[in-house]
Structure formats: C-alpha cells, structure tokens
Write a protein that binds this DNA or RNA. Sequence first.
DNA 1: GAACCGACTGGAACCGGTTCCAACGCGTTC
DNA 2: GAACGCGTTGGAACCGGTTCCAGTCGGTTC
Lengths: 348, 348
Amino acid sequence: MVTLRDVARAAGVSLATASRALSDAPHVSAANREQVVRTAEALGYRPSHAARALTTGSTGTIGLVLPDLENPFFAAVAKGVQGRARETGREVLVADTDEDGDLERDLVDRLLDRVDGLVLCSPRMPPPALERVVADGRVALVNREAPGAPSVSFDTADGVRQALAHLRALGHDAVAYAGGPAASWSDALRRSAFTAGGAAEVEATEVLDLGAFRPVHAGGVQAADLALAAGASAVLCFNDLVALGVLARLHARGVRVPDDVSVVGFDDVAAATLVTPPLTTVAVPLARAGRQAVDLLDVTGGRAAGQAPERRCLPTHLVVRSSSGPAPAPAASSPAVRLSPDPEVVIP
Amino acid sequence: MVTLRDVARAAGVSLATASRALSDAPHVSAANREQVVRTAEALGYRPSHAARALTTGSTGTIGLVLPDLENPFFAAVAKGVQGRARETGREVLVADTDEDGDLERDLVDRLLDRVDGLVLCSPRMPPPALERVVADGRVALVNREAPGAPSVSFDTADGVRQALAHLRALGHDAVAYAGGPAASWSDALRRSAFTAGGAAEVEATEVLDLGAFRPVHAGGVQAADLALAAGASAVLCFNDLVALGVLARLHARGVRVPDDVSVVGFDDVAAATLVTPPLTTVAVPLARAGRQAVDLLDVTGGRAAGQAPERRCLPTHLVVRSSSGPAPAPAASSPAVRLSPDPEVVIP
DNA sequence: GAACCGACTGGAACCGGTTCCAACGCGTTC
DNA sequence: GAACGCGTTGGAACCGGTTCCAGTCGGTTC
C-alpha cells in the first residue's frame, strides 16, 4: 500500500507539503502542487480513511437506522438519504432493526461512534429512550418528532383532510378508518386527524373507527369485513398494504370497487399502481424526507447551543386513481346487504 | 471524549495493559483486567473506531453495492447481508447505483478503501470492468458470476424447468417467454433455459420468445398483447413486475386468468401475493444469498493464493398460486380469438 | 543597503489505539 | 545460592494522515 510518505518522497517534497497539495490547502506553490498530484496519480495513491478520520475527527459517513429495509416505505426514505449523502460526498452506514425497539437503541448507540451524524427513521423506541438518544445532538428524525431533535415529518392531518374531502365530494357520508398499530406515532396522527380534523371540513360525514390492525395485508383483510358490517361506503386505510388487503377481501366477497365501496390508502407505495383497480392514496414525499434529514444533520453541526433544532413538515397530496368513486345510490339501504360472498376465492 | 489513556491513568496501569485488558488479550492479571474493565465502564469509555482501524488495518465494515434499494428484489438481498453482518459484529456501508454501470464502478472503488470486503449485487458493469474490480480479491458477487470471484447465484435453469413442467402438466402446449433487458445476465440464463433446457423435459411444448422488455410493469403490459397475438396459453415472465403487468393487461382486455391464460412470474416478491389472482412464481432465496455472500467474504480472506474462489448456486422453487391453471380446451382454436377487449379500463 | 513582509517549506507533535520488546518479580530446579 | 523460566508489566514505536510552528527565501519599502 502506497502512503502519503511515499508520495512525498517520490515527489521530492516534505510530508506536510504533500498533504497540503492533495487537500487543496493554501501555502503550496503551483509547481509543487502539480508535481505532488501527478506523483500521487502515478503511484496510485489512495488516502487512508482511517488515518484521516483519526486526525480530523470526521468520518465522512452518516448512519441510517430504520425498522425494515424490505418495507417499501422505508426503502424510499433510504433511497433519499443515500442519494443526498452521495451528492455531498459521504457514505451511508445502514442498520435494519427488524422493527425491534431494543435492538434499535443498541444499533443507534453502536453507529453513533462511527458516524458524523445519524438519520433515525420511524423509531420504535419509547419516548424516554428516544429523548436520551437525540440528546447526543447528532441525530435527525424522520417520521417522528422529539423535543430537542431536528426532524422531518409529514402533514398527515392535511392528507387525511384531503382524502375525506375527496370522499365527501363523491357523496360518501359513512367513512370508516382502518387504523394501524396502537404504538404507532403516525397512526395516532392519522386517527386524530380523522376523528377531529375531518369533522370540521366534512361535517356531514359520519366517521367510523374500525380499530387497530397490523399494518400488513392480512390486517386489511380483517378490516374489510368490519367495514362492510359497519355499513361504510368508503374505507380510509392506515397504509397502502392495509388498503391492498381491503381490496383483496372485497374482491373475494364479490363487492365491487369503487362501485359498491371506495378504498383509499396512505403512502403511495409502488404496489398501489399495480393492483386492480389502481389505488387512490395519499402520497407522502418519502425520498425528499430522507434527503432533507441529511441536510438537517449538517445544519445541526453549526447550530448554536441555545437555538432550537429545525422541524420540517412536508406536504402530502391525494393521488386519485380508480379505487374511489361516487357513493352508491342510497336506494339500496346499505351496500353490505346486496353482497354475494364468493366462498371459492382464496385469500392468500 | 474519554480515551484509553484516561482509563489507564484512572486504573493505575499502563496504556499497554489497559489495551490488553479491554481486548481480552493474554498477559494481564485477573485483578488488573477487572480493575480496567470497571474503570472503563465507570468513565463511559468508548473505543475509537478510527484509531483501531488505523492500527489493525481492519474496519469491521463490509460494503454493499446494488442497483436500486427500492427494488424489492435487491431490498431482500440487502436485508440478508445486513442481518448476517450484524450477527458477525460488523456494519454495512450501502451504496445504490441507480442502475448505472459507470457510477457502480466509482462506488465500488470508493467503498473498497473503507471496508474489509464488499458484496456486489447484480452488477451492471460490463465484464472487463467487472473482472478488474474483482481482481481486488475482496469482492463477492450475488446474482452474477465472474472468473476469479466468489459468487452466489441462483439455479435459474431449474426454476425455468420447474415452471415449464408445471405448465406442461396443466396441458399448456404453447408457452411464451416475456424476457428482460438484453444486457441482463439473469435474462440470458433464463432465456437459454427456456429455449434449450425446457425442450428436454417438456418436449411437446412449443416455446415462443416474445422478445425483451423493460423489467417493469409497463413492460408486462406490452408483453401481454404480444402473447395473446401469438396465441400462447401461458406466459412465463422475466420477473414478477413484468408478470403483474401482464396480469393487469389481461384483466383490462377481459382475458380471464387462469381460465384463458396462465401467468408465471419469477422472484416471488411480496407483491406477488397481493394481486388478484395471486401470482404463481419461481421463488428465489434472496436473503439467503445475501447472507452467504457475507460468509464468502470471510472465506476469501483465508483462501490460499492458488485456490479457486467458491461459487455457490442456490436452489429455486416454484410457488404455485392462482395465476396458473389448466389450459383451455383446444376446441376454441386459440384463446385470443374469443376475447372481448374492454377499452374502458385504464392501465395506470 | 538594511529592515521588513509575505509566501512557501519542512520538522515535529499529535490523533487513539495496538503490539513489539526489554525489564522485572517470583517461584523452581539443579 | 545461582541460574533459569514463566507470567506480567510498561516504555516506545508505529499505523497514516493533519497541522502547528519555526525557519528560509525572495521581493519591497524607506
């Protein structure tokens, strides 16, 4: 391995000059600079990151901790973090917590000694643990907020409002909410927007809380039956995976979407456009959030002690596709009544 | 920041002894060891990774370079790499190339200075560039092979064989292949297995090569029409995304699946179970491949110079769901004939 | 022509660990 | 009682860079 010392010797200058030449520092003659650069090139010199990190104290690396790399929601955030980090010349150390809050804490601790800053996405750890973690001062949150930490979150309440207004405009006056896990920070926001915020703009709409479901396909299957039993003409779902489950179950039971029941999801993951009918859903700028979180880390470094960290809130917007449509005519008292279950269709 | 020197001073021992005590090295008395460990704990000592990397030459980090974090195929591999790395006490530096072969080369080079070994998944770079890259000796490949490099790939040919045998058993005697990009290494394998390998076991089956498509939903939409025009009663697809596109287009044109046409995908991504009907597909052990690639990196370190690197090939298996069924009765000459296109349905 | 100023240069200290090597203490053995 | 050997210990070199500081040199200014 060729070191800076080798380059300096070969170029006929001192170690100090060689270092300055290669790091574009002042106080080097143009001739020497070029000479050093050329020799470094010729010798195939590659600076040692470890040595540089040791003296400068900066690693050129940012950490990313998220619950599940295979979940398209988090994958999109990761892509954003990754892209922005590369643009700014840094690498990303990524850790997947498997949705485990305890493991999450460990990983954050471990990563923090190896990185300049850390993006923590949708943390599962309880608030006290989270507050201790962000006290480090080098952590930016995505999709959650904590006192004293910079964060990027989404205007969920407005997304819910848009979805309800859309459904209201289509004549739906009984809308059900298929919620996510009780411990979910996002679900708390969506649910309260649904029950409270929705009422203001969409007064005439009756809102039905179906309860909490696992944020996966099977949860949606379960929610669909409850929605039908409750007589809802539209279902708003915690996320797209749940919405896809609702869609599948409605199809299996012979309920037409959107003719009999409308379904609206949340997040706008790729799969939302792949199903039949394509899913109406609230799009969330996930990659942008990842990118901005990286930028917040940089700001954080330069922030004065007393200054409050920045909290950003990104807008959401409804994407209307084909899973939502006009409410069925009120003549047929309740849509659930005229259903013809098809027991032969198997739900995977 | 508290350094090892601080710990040594506080514990009343030398720097050397403190280092040995904390790294479980021999030549330290039990009393001293415990004393050092205790003071380190009390002072909240955290070893500096940079310093350790500088002296030992090992970073405790492995790199992962892949074309697209948001693609569920690669996300699954990433999850496996990530999990195995954690089990063996290492971190993962991940880089997303956005499917760009040139960027890929740069990123591999950059990462190689910062990691102990690197997993390169489905590389897009041309063979000569790839051979130069693997010449480093610290690179393990996933889903591609190169002379001199350890690799983990999949028994694609057997997967194709299984799919064809399945379709043959269902009475299909005209099967079409909706292939992937011409530059794709996997597609080359699948295509040749389809045209050559298939024939051996499934002699009576006519195989129709539909050509190459972009490995996305839209590519499948395009392929579906060609398959119908060709009179195929079954379509085998390059990957699940293409298969989902085929499914959507067939639905839009009023073709029933599997009654009129059977569809088989490849990879078994999560979305395969979410659509209607659930997709029959060839499952590929992606996470396992990621895990094994990490293990191959370790083996590589200890391998003798002359010894050939290990190439592993993981088995694939067909998952039969509802998108494949018996071939339609031959009475209706060709399935394409009795189709009733439904121009109102919009393809997203 | 001497004092001065600025740009450039290189020796050396330093970052925080690991590890070689010499020294040391103590119990055994001849 | 002296030589020996083993386990333990600490001083110091080292990993590969960055940066402080003192010194050198050329050109200005009075």
